[in-house]
Design a protein around this nucleic acid. Sequence first.
RNA 1: UCGGGGAUGGUGUAAUUGGUAACACAACUGGUUCUGGUCCAGUCAUUGGGGGUUCGAGUCCUCCUCCCCGAACCA
Length: 567
Amino acid sequence: MNDKADPDVAERSNFLHDIISEDIKNGRFERSFRTRFPPEPNGYLHIGHAKAICLDFDLADEFAGTCNLRFDDTNPTTEDETYVEGIIDDLKWLGYEAENICYTSDYFEQLYAWAELLIIDGLAYIDDQSSVEISEQRGGFGKPGVESPFRSRNDDENLDLFRQMRDGVFPEGHCVLRARIDMQHDNMQMRDPVMYRIKHASHYRTGDRWCIYPTYDWAHGQGDAIEGITHSLCTLEFSNNRDLYNWFLEKLPLPNPAPYQTEFARLELTHTVTSKRKLRDLIDNGVVSSWDDPRLPTLRALKKRGYPASAIRSFCKDIGAARTNSRHAIELLESYVRVNLNAVSQRRMAILRPVKLIITNWPNDENGHPIVEWREVTNNPENELDGVRLVPFSGTLYIEQDDFQVNPPPKFFRLTPGAEVRLRSGYFITCNNFVENSSGELQEIHCTYDPATAGGKAPDNRKVKATLHWVSADHAVTGSVSLYDRLFTAELPGETTGDVMDDLNHQSVETLTNCKFEPALAETPTEVVVQFERLGYFSRDAGTPLLFHRTVGLRDEWANIQKRTKK
RNA sequence: UCGGGGAUGGUGUAAUUGGUAACACAACUGGUUCUGGUCCAGUCAUUGGGGGUUCGAGUCCUCCUCCCCGAACCA
């Protein structure tokens, strides 16, 4: 399930591609290319993860290799089964299937055995100091560390203590297992890093079998080796861990060549955040409703909002991979969504902020009721196979408030008193009058129609400057629409004050409840995205009846004109 | 302060590995159009700064500047 077949997605070269080709050419590994996507199950996947996933899986696909999904579950106090399930769902939705679903916790026994081996080889020791003492002794940038007084403990004692650790003899924090490397090393990661800590916590998979848990560094490379990974791809912040990754692998009796780590820059987007902590803060503080709130950059939120998975994949492929820290404009992602949706989504008419339009010369039938015509409207001009539908048209309609102005600004092409416009697939109409209430609010617009322009074409070929969408008042279904805007006003939230909450966009969602939809919209299946003509793409909510989420608006030249004239 | 990694237009990614800056987004001009959508045509950088090697440098050397990551029993 990948879209190699998608001609829109061109393969772009990047440094990872080059490295792997080189390794294959030189026969560095006698096994085939294999990588893994290693999330920690303590939150849901977001757009940043999508980049890593696309990289891992597409590279595997391209080089005839495989990719595992591995849950890096070494910290029982933060992880949970629900996230495991959520991540599996998210990955599937994105369109990828893992070769194997693995868990670091499945390697706990092996990891433990290897740790004993290191102790026996004099390469690890039990340190009885507290975390603050250890931290203080670690030194600083340019300042060498100090060796622990327990560093010279003999191997037999270390082994004995380690076994007692495992047996639950000690309380949390009593001691840790440390690798004996070099307290003077320039790389802080190499200053006798902690391999095991005591946690009397039950793990969502191993239950109470363990009370000591391996740290990331002690588990990751070994997990890679166990799975036969060749290329361990991760983000830039792990660069400093690479020395340690290699050190452990060298000291262990593993078949060579060992996997090796290569880092790339994580995906950052403007006007949003992608750290799990910050996402969680937004949820916990009630800024957004949950992990799938459509304003969030999580995959489940994007899905709910109507972002096609294939658009996200195209985006990730095209931005490629590099080692430069960068931040992509969120508009770029949106443009991929528009390109995708423009091709596939059916067009419908919906009025978000309705105002009544009365056609004063509209004919009545023999009973004195306005006649109803069923106008034929194209479903998608981008795809003839989508055909047409019939939309009821009559003498009383709703149009968008924005489409009428009494005193129009320059370049306003829409309806104004005296002007003629087209109602899409309907008729040309001319505004003769309008009605306001005592407080000056627009109540009704009165127009006459030209019967000769049925279907929206004038026999004399005269032109109009605008085509408006409309909904017949008698046939309209009423529903609601949620309009989303960026969650943060600042490109880089927290840039000025350091607190992302200071940059919150307090108008990031607006829900309109009196929207008028053409009848066909009531038939739209849940989670399907349609284009509301002239407005944008909208996804039907699965829970709330007749609610649509705005996926993304259409490009809006009129908005640009207004912005320009303002300057 | 030490170590590691970066720097190409408004933004992001490329450049046959030393051969004369490409693609996308955004913006702007104009054209087409029954969506101010789509589509089409066009405009918009000499590669952080200095010096050097070379017929030729974004690619090599050198000095400088700026930015990111790192002192968790998180990953």
